[in-house]
Design a protein around this nucleic acid. Structure first.
Length: 549
DNA sequence: CCCGATCTATG
DNA sequence: CACATAGATCGGGT
């Protein structure tokens, strides 16, 4: 009996990013856990025990029903460990597993019994191995984060995945038909503009058309020549007014939307709903990611794209969809973390932050801040949390580097605490080797001391951003726990469906609208105790489009 | 059939 | 020469 990690194996490396392995699908896992008659558990577990023993691994502690499920619902830990297993090229004894180099995949395409068995076996493996990682968990001071935040959130996510969101198939088909018309026409006119056909979806062929045939001015260089991205096409159009560009851009946008809707259509389950899968262990900052399909990047910025949100609808028995989002949460976190008195007061006073900042750095009264000034300020304020450079700002705003530099200087002259904070974060991270969020979630950044300038500066920008983005992730996770618990406590039938980083989408049961609105606002606002208030905006409507604000 | 490159959607 | 993601398509290489 060898309960130790194989001595030949290298020690697990501490990495800043948790590996992207997921034990899927959580929807079935959640359903299985809720299944009152799940006697197959015991059978599968015994088989797992045997498989483990055969490989010289030992299970410690209580190995009854309770402790099995206890580990089954620890996806963060579970996936981390399975990934480690893969790194060590160990066969975990799961029949459906295929272990390539550096990769381990669990497949549950069989019947439910097989799926359950595989899950239980995976759980047994995790149970056997979890203690190898307890040291690292302790080292990272992450026990509380895991037990009070991530694990409870995991259960909430399981509910959300299982619920899914209803889809209006007719509306979907209408939009597809509309887009097909736009695409056909744009393609036809694009071909007419250059006198021949070309694959509009091939950047390489487009390069030939734009820069060889049409002799348009050169755009930004990329590995394969010159870029044909949207920003460049737009600037080319402004310079040349060429009809081909108009049609190409129209084609790109419509084709992209059609593709997205087609893909969403394929994701609609038997129940007429889309069930995404959330991952807690992919984004290094602590954000949740969504895949299969990704419901966190449904268009909103252009009106054409935004209409896609109209296909996400409220279902029978419910009154409406409700969208609740944090207003400027990252800026507020920056105000809080930096302790900048001016910013904090502005938020406390409920001012329009960008207008307020604009008035300060342009030295005009707030009512004389033009929309051009405001949008510059907005771009800069957001950029600060990304490690903005004057060059980057100049490109973003299409202004000179000098103007951008002046803008930043004026900002820091007025809000010095922000500059000090940003500088301090990087210095501290260099000393500690990691950054931390308000909940203590760490991101290790070994590259901060690299001699490679590119690597080091990348790490520095990551160090600036991670506490901010990560703290926002912490906060909305706390809010989700609060909303989930409070819905239950008040015996409401409304339910959370989606999370989009700073937004929650709920399906409101008949007659519950007022209480849900109050509850969600309250829980989101109270999810963290910052030196600035957390404001929550609410919208309701029959579809996600209508609930937007 | 895999994978890097390119492009684009979101916060 | 901005932070964090997911994913489609193209086209060259295995």
């Amino acid at each position: 009996m060898q309960p130790r990690w194989p001595s030949s194996a290298p020690a697990p490396q501490s990495t800043s990013t948790l590996p992207p392995w997921t034990l899927r699908p959580r929807t079935r896992l959640a359903a299985w856990l809720r299944d009152p008659e799940a006697p197959k558990v015991i059978h599968g577990f015994k088989a797992a025990l045997k498989a483990l023993t055969a490989r010289g691994l030992e299970l410690e502690g209580v190995v009854d029903d309770t402790s099995i499920s206890g580990y089954l619902i620890q996806p963060d830990r579970r996936t981390y460990e399975l990934a480690e297993l893969a790194q060590h090229h160990l066969n975990v004894g799961i029949p459906a597993a295929t272990a390539k180099a550096g990769q381990l995949e669990l497949s549950f395409d069989g019947d439910d019994n097989a799926a359950a068995d595989a899950l239980v076996q995976a759980a047994a493996v995790v149970l056997a191995l979890s203690r190898f990682f307890e040291d690292e968990l302790r080292e990272r001071r992450a026990e509380e984060l895991l037990s009070t935040l991530e694990l409870p959130v995991s259960r909430v996510l399981a509910d959300m995945e299982l619920a899914g969101i209803a889809i209006d198939m007719d509306k979907m088909d209408d939009q597809l038909a509309d887009l097909a018309r736009v695409i056909d026409q744009a393609q036809e006119q694009a071909f007419a503009a250059i006198g021949h056909e070309v694959n509009l979806g091939s950047p390489k062929q487009l390069q030939t058309v734009l820069f060889d045939e049409l002799q348009l001015p050169k755009t930004k260089k990329i590995k394969s020549g010159y870029t044909t991205d949207a920003a460049s096409l737009k600037s080319l159009l402004e310079k040349t007014g060429h009809e081909f560009l108009v049609q190409l851009m129209a084609h790109r946008e419509a084709a992209k939307l059609r593709q997205m809707i087609e893909s969403l259509k394929k994701s609609v389950a038997e129940d007429g709903r889309i069930h995404t899968t959330y991952a807690q262990n992919v984004a290094a900052t602590g954000r949740i990611s969504s895949n299969n399909p990704n419901l966190q990047n449904i268009p909103i910025r252009s009106e054409e794209g935004r209409r896609v949100r109209g296909i996400f609808v409220v279902s029978d028995g419910y009154e409406c969809l409700l969208s609740a989002d944090y207003s400027q949460i990252e800026m507020r976190i920056m105000a809080h973390l930096s302790g900048d008195a001016g910013l904090i007061q502005a938020y406390k006073d409920g001012e329009d932050l960008h207008r307020f900042v604009g008035s300060n750095i342009f030295h005009v009264p707030t009512d004389q801040v033009t929309s051009a000034m405001r949008s510059k300020v907005k771009a800069m304020s957001y950029g600060l949390a990304y490690g903005l450079t004057s060059f980057g700002l100049s490109k973003q705003l299409e202004i000179s580097v000098d103007e951008a530099r002046t803008l930043m200087k004026d900002y820091f002259d007025r809000f010095g605490a922000v500059r000090d904070y940003l500088r301090g974060v990087v210095d501290q991270a260099r000393v500690d080797g990691y950054t931390a969020t308000i909940e203590g979630r760490r991101r290790y950044l070994p590259d901060l001391t690299s001699t490679d300038r590119q690597l080091r500066e990348n790490a520095e920008r990551i160090a600036l951003n991670s506490p901010i983005q990560g703290s926002a992730a912490d906060i909305i996770k706390r809010a989700m726990l609060g909303v989930h618990a409070e819905l239950q406590a008040q015996g409401l039938k409304s339910r959370m469906l989606l999370q989009v980083h700073d937004e929650l989408v709920l399906e409101v049961a008949a007659g519950e609208r007022d209480s849900v609105e109050k509850l969600v606002t309250g829980q989101m606002a109270a999810a963290a105790d910052l030196s600035v208030p957390l404001e929550v905006q609410i919208g309701v409507g029959p579809s996600w489009y209508d609930a937007g604000h």
